[in-house]
Simulated scan of single mutants.
Amino acid sequence: MTSSTSPSRNPRVRVTDVELLSSAWYVLRRTTFDYQHADGHWTTEQRETYDRGNGATVLLYDADGGTVLLTRQFRYPVYVNDHPDGMFIETAAGLLDADDPETAIRREAEEETGVRIGSLEHVFDVYTSPGSVTERLHCYAAPYDPADRGTGGGLAEEGEDIEVLELPFPKALEMIGTGEIADAKTIMLLQWAALHGPFRPS
């Protein structure tokens, strides 16, 4: 077991076994561990964790024009869980792979939206689904100039078919309420922009 699968930072947790279940796409493990409850007694627990690596995302905004730049692409997992057509609206994002978060999101933003990011602001980090997925998502915001936009659209060799959406910021917020935007990272970043970011009340 590696330190990533059997950490020792919490004395109330003792990992006893880690079983690899799948590594066909990402890594699925089943871990057995002893856990000490608040009243002092111990129980043996099992959890499955899905490790797809960490990621980064960015909210691209034009404060002067009052717009944000989002993407729309087909997401099969949401399609099979009652999303109307699987065409999901979200901020540009991707896995870190071997890069640091800032390098990764600059790469992903240019590939998906055609925007070459200049200044970049780190907003927060979040765990996207802590009950089963190990991913930590690094969230950023960055201004863009509509005149400097490239093509975007993603990488065809990776099967990406990404539509770039330039939306008035009030419309994007409204789409959270209507359910047209249902992506967690996108909702968090839009709400940050409204409360503390470039579109906060003056």
Rank of each mutant, 00 (worst) to 15 (best):
A104S: 14
Y127V: 07
V164Q: 01
G131K: 09
D148V: 08
P130I: 05
P130R: 04
E160P: 00
P146A: 08
A109F: 02
L96G: 03
L165C: 06
V133N: 07
V123I: 12
L137Q: 08
L96C: 10
A104V: 15
E102G: 11
D161E: 09
A98Y: 14
G159N: 09
I117P: 00
V133K: 04
C139K: 02
E111T: 11
H138G: 03
E102M: 15
L155Q: 06
T128Q: 07
I105S: 01
E158W: 04
R107A: 15
E121N: 13
V126T: 08
R107G: 15
A156G: 06
D145I: 09
S129W: 15
Y144G: 01
V164L: 02
L155S: 11
L95S: 08
P143Q: 05
R136L: 13
V164S: 00
G114L: 09
A147C: 13
V164G: 00
E108N: 13
R149T: 06
A141C: 13
V123K: 04
G114Q: 03
G154C: 00
G150E: 01
E108W: 12
R136M: 08
L165K: 02
F124K: 08
S132Y: 11
L165S: 04
L95I: 12
L95Y: 14
G159R: 03
E166A: 10
G94I: 02
Y140K: 00
R116P: 05
D125R: 12
P101Y: 04
V126R: 03
E112D: 11
T103N: 15
L95G: 10
E157W: 03
A156E: 11
V115C: 11
G118I: 07
P146K: 09
T128C: 12
D100N: 14
E111Q: 12
L155R: 04
I105R: 01
R116M: 11
E121M: 14
Y127W: 12
T134A: 06
G150Q: 03
T151P: 05
I162T: 03
L165T: 02
G118A: 11
F124C: 06
T134S: 10
R107Y: 14
I162M: 02
E158D: 08
T134V: 10
G114P: 05
H138D: 06
Y144A: 01
S132Q: 09
D148G: 12
P130G: 04
T151W: 05
A156D: 09
F124N: 07
E135W: 05
E166G: 03
G150S: 04
Y127C: 05
A104F: 10
P101T: 06
S119W: 12
A104I: 12
V126P: 00
E112F: 00
V164H: 00
G152E: 00
